[in-house]
Every structure is written in C-alpha cells, then in structure tokens.
Computed example of a mutant assay.
Amino acid sequence: MSKSPVTDSAAYLEKKRFFNNILTVYGRKPVLEALEDPSTDIYRLHLASSNRSASIMDDIRKLAEKKGAEILYHDRAALSRISKNAKQDQGVAADLVCKKFQSSDDFLADNLGKKFRLLALDGITNPQNLGMIIRSACAGNIDGILLPQQGNAQIDPLVIKASAGTVFRAPILRCEDLAKTLTRFIDKGTLVCGLSSHAPANLKDFSPDAACIYVLGNETDGVSAKVNALCNTSVKIPMNNGVESLNVAVTAALIAFQ
C-alpha cells in the first residue's frame, strides 16, 4: 500500500511566506538608517547584551520601539549567527519586513498567464553592481529580480547603500538554484532571454508576447554555461566606437526602462 504524499500545513506555509519577506540588516549605522526610512517595517531588533551605552544605540532602540519591534538580547555568539557577520555587526541586527520579497515559486503561482518581466542574476558578485541593479529594477518596468541564495553578493550594507535604500521596496524573488528555477518558469511558457552580440534582434525592438526573464551574468565571466543553455531567445545591445560591452548594472538599467 503506497503512502499518501506529505503536504505542508497551511500554518507552516504562511510562516514560510512570512520569513521569505524578512531581510536581516546588521551594523549600527545601516540599522539606524533603515529604521529612519519611513517605508520600513521591523519585526525584531537583535542586540548583543554586552553592548556599551551609546547615543546611536539609544536612537536605534527608540525607533524600533516606535515601529513596534520585538527587542531581543543575545550573547555575541548568538548574535553573530543571526547577522552572519560577526566582524561587522557591531552588536546589532534587525529583521526588516520587506513586503515585496517572496519566493520565486510563490511569484510564479500568483502570476501564471501574466506578461511579467523579470531579471535573473547569475553570479553578480560586486555589491555595488547588485545595489545599482536593484535600484534600476525598482524604478523601472521590472516585476521581480530572481536572486539565488548562492553565487551572488549578499544583500549587505554595501548593497543597501548602492541601492539608495530601494532594496527595502524592491521585488526580490528568492530561489536556491537559478537553473532549476528557470526550468520551472520555462515549463509554464516563460521566455528566458540572454544578451549576445550575435543575436538577431536589438533590445529596443524586442517586444515578446509572453512573460520574459532577462538573464544577467557575472561581471567577468558572463552567464554560466548551465544557465545559458536554458536561454530560448536572445537580444543584443548595439555598440559604437569599438566598445565591446557594458557594465552589467548599466545593462540592467537599459532593460528596466525599455
């Protein structure tokens, strides 16, 4: 007799969706600046119990309390596990609720049949590039940014600064493996578009009838072979004066405002 498949409870799935909205920010100044942004919501403020009194710490606590955050105290080892950066957390971490963060699977389920436009990031390791890509996508005509957990720069204070704080409002779609995620989108009829100087169509003339994901690759090596093999269409950005390529963040901006 075969066993019935185990399904997750509704309560578990709701909790999982909530934590997909969480972005943990660390460091005194980054946390303070995040809390000063009127658009941010905070779930929990984590403080090292060994922190010495300081005016910036008082300001952080007051802002967190004003926003209704739960304030928790930890030993330094526990706090470093939360921040994942013991050298730079300065005894402070905050769990921010970013309402446009979600899993790629939830986005796909909610947008079946829609003509969405996404960016997929395949090995964007420079924090400044990642921040500028997020800023352009947030400002432009992009419905989501596929950001795998591995292989890209993490969203840290450098990324937040380069994004000019737009990361808190950006539609980040979290996934574990980009190739597997793209395959799921392809199975639902999504185009996956690479950028190639040999492509027949120019970006400015490209207007697909289906949902489309534009893949942006590593600053040095470009798109990985595994992901490139999944691209089922491609476009080019014509270059003048012998210029061979553009910075990946500039390319993202051109796509976002196409």
Rank of each mutant, 00 (worst) to 15 (best):
T220W: 00
Y73R: 12
A249M: 05
I133Q: 10
Y214T: 03
R135P: 01
V6M: 06
S104T: 11
R44I: 15
A120L: 08
A94D: 09
K99V: 06
N152P: 08
L23F: 04
F185R: 10
P157G: 13
V215H: 10
T125F: 01
I71A: 10
Q149I: 07
M239A: 13
A11L: 12
C98A: 00
L203A: 06
A256M: 05
Q154V: 11
R17C: 11
V223P: 07
L191S: 02
F116M: 05
I134W: 04
D110N: 15
D58K: 06
Q149L: 12
L118Y: 03
K67V: 08
A249G: 11
S4K: 13
P30F: 05
I82K: 13
A78N: 11
N232D: 14
Y26R: 09
G140S: 10
T24R: 15
S80A: 15
L254G: 02
D59N: 10
I60P: 05
V92N: 07
L119P: 03
G217T: 08
A162Y: 01
C193V: 03
T190A: 13
I213R: 04
R76K: 03
G68S: 11
N228C: 05
D177V: 14
S103W: 13
G165D: 01
I133Y: 11
A153P: 04
Q128N: 12
H74R: 07
V25H: 06
K84E: 15
A69I: 07
V248C: 10
A164L: 04
G140D: 05
L119R: 04
Y26G: 03
K161Q: 14
K204G: 01
N21T: 15
A139V: 00
K67Q: 11
L130P: 08
L119Q: 07
P30Q: 11
D75Q: 02
T125L: 07
D41H: 13
G189F: 06
N240L: 15
L112G: 03
P127S: 05
I142D: 06
F107C: 13
P38A: 00
D37L: 07
K114S: 14
S50G: 01
D105M: 11
S2I: 05
M1I: 04
